[in-house]
Design a protein around this nucleic acid. Structure first.
Lengths: 109, 109
DNA sequence: ACGAACGGTAAGTTACTGCTTACTTAAACG
DNA sequence: CGTTTAAGTAAGCAGTAACTTACCGTTCGT
């Protein structure tokens, strides 16, 4: 199942985020990623597994290679989560400011 | 410093995300959070420290209490990161589809 | 059919993270 | 002032996470 948990945990690791960003630049194979990064190929494989289970990437068999690309749905899900709480916090600021305004004559603070 | 690293890592822990969400609902004190969650008060304190260093929350002294609220800037930063890669992946899909279209006569596949 | 290329999996090690209890600090208030 | 209330800090422990090397399975080319 794709959850906020798996999504944010996937992006919490710096190496894995680099993998994610390279794939976002253009679809990439496992070996190509491993060549660009300072970790072994199995490490990249493990990171890709985590990213895939988080719903952040897709993979396609392409001969003996396996090409990974970004899954926009998972990315959008996390973005929308953050956007929700961003908007909510702005709304809270607004009402808090209004209450302070209304109370300013009664409550000298 | 506020980074993607600290931000995503902060939201990767389920308890910490609950803390974040409660604060987003309305500014809350440490003790109040601890009363609502299945962890000790020091644990909540430690989570709040991580969230604050990640730039996701602010705190204000309020007598002996300390009230935490959401920091919209940090939340927006993470949202914008995800939005960028979301848009980028959609653009990639589009160009990939166009290339497939152009090649359809030459490359039977 | 065989070898090479590519990639996933297993097992083990090291480092970090989240929790607890115990202690310290700071503000309010009689 | 001393006590109470609230919260941050320290130390220690258990679980997890990110690597490594070694191994196994598939697909392509000759």
């Amino acid at each position: 199942m794709i959850t906020y948990q798996t999504g944010f945990a996937a992006l919490a690791d710096p190496t894995r985020r680099k993998v994610f960003e390279r794939i976002a630049a253009h679809p990439t194979s496992v070996g190509e990623l491993a060549a660009e990064l300072p970790v072994s190929r199995p490490a990249v494989s493990q990171h890709l597994k985590v990213l895939k289970q988080a719903g952040l990437v897709n993979d396609t068999a392409r001969g003996t290679r396996r090409v990974y690309s970004i899954n926009p749905e998972g990315v959008a899900m996390l973005r929308d989560y953050l956007d929700l709480f961003w908007r909510r916090s702005l709304a809270n600021f607004k009402t808090a400011a209004e209450e302070t305004f209304h109370d300013r004559d009664n409550q000298p603070n």
